[in-house]
């Protein structure tokens, strides 16, 4: 299956290891990401006021690229746009929702982009890679696993953007299960904890890192308390806060017990038998290899 893929800025810069692991894992299960030609910023963060239509220009331009890819035969009849980053997913989806619900706004945006060859027709669906996996069937994924993540206790961290608001959430906003189902399909153990969809502090990491420390500490403690040995996320920003900020907490409090943070496709890659170089584990700030070695999953 070939699917148009929107990488977004972060996966091309600070989180290249996440992209790499996702692309390689996807290949293993027969999914090929076709990167959008000429993609631009997703428009982050989703604009929430009623009168700032222009903020939706950037997302819509990306949708046009998908339309073009179909025309050029880069993909076949594929109106879905795949994202790996929850924040991109959220921003693109919210803009798309507004375009789909408000014909006037769509018209205005199209008029504004009159230099583009065609209009956005409102038919693109933004999807997160997790949803594609779910659609394919976690049971099918389970069958393709060559290295079951036996005994590894994994806490699923959803953060905000994948679940909220409800209109774009990929799962039940309060009782999600998609990541747990993913974890089970890798044959790892799920962890029942409370902090799975608690905010990590998001972009406050830029200018209010203290808050992020507080939130991250709370999340890690809850994971510890409930026996987690690893945390997976689906968002490079969450991953940054949980991983890099956690390492800084550790620096100041040597007693602090850390938990490695994995991007979900990094664990998926291990289970699919990819070698650790393809997954960029060495870029994770909190040592990610240790626990995997302990569980005899990598050498």
């Amino acid at each position: 299956m070939k699917i148009p893929y929107f990488p977004g800025c972060t996966l091309k810069t600070t989180a290249q290891n996440f992209e790499m692991s996702a692309i390689e894992s996807a290949k293993k299960i027969g999914i090929e990401f076709i990167e959008l030609p000429r993609w631009n910023c997703c428009g982050v963060v989703a604009s929430l006021t009623s009168d700032d239509l222009m903020r939706h220009l950037a997302p819509v331009r990306n949708f046009l690229r998908v339309q073009e890819m179909n025309k050029q035969g880069l993909v076949e009849n594929e109106n879905r746009l795949l994202t790996l980053c929850s924040m991109c997913y959220n921003t693109l989806s919210l803009s798309n929702l507004r375009m789909k619900n408000d014909a006037d706004d769509l018209q205005k945006i199209n008029d504004f982009m009159h230099k583009e060859e065609e209009n956005y027709d409102g038919n693109i669906e933004v999807v997160h890679f997790l949803s594609i996996l779910e659609e394919m069937g976690f049971d099918k994924l389970a069958q393709k696993i060559t290295k079951p993540l036996k005994d590894l206790k994994v806490a699923s961290y959803y953060g905000c953007m994948l679940l909220r608001p409800k209109e774009v959430g990929i799962d039940d906003a309060e009782a999600p299960t998609i990541l747990e189902n993913f974890v089970k399909s890798l044959k790892a153990e799920t962890v029942d904890w409370d902090a799975g969809s608690r905010c990590c502090g998001s972009y406050h990491t830029v200018n209010n890192v203290e808050i992020v420390y507080t939130l991250v500490k709370g999340i890690i403690l809850d994971a510890r308390k409930n026996g987690a040995e690893a945390i997976i996320t689906s968002c490079p920003l969450c991953a940054f806060n949980l991983d890099v900020r956690q390492s800084e907490i550790k620096k100041d409090n040597p007693d602090f017990q850390t938990i490695p943070i994995f991007y979900f496709t990094q664990l998926m890659g291990i289970a699919l038998g990819l070698n650790k170089e393809a997954l960029g584990l060495e870029f994770n700030k909190i040592d990610a290899e240790d626990i995997l070695k302990k569980k005899k999953l990598i050498k």
Binding site: T14, A15, H204, F240
Partner: peptide
């Protein structure tokens, strides 16, 4: 340098 791009862009959009 170490901040994720999305965080920087996001925070500038908000602030």
């Amino acid at each position: 340098l170490k901040l994720p791009t999305i965080a920087v862009v996001g925070s500038f959009r908000k602030f």
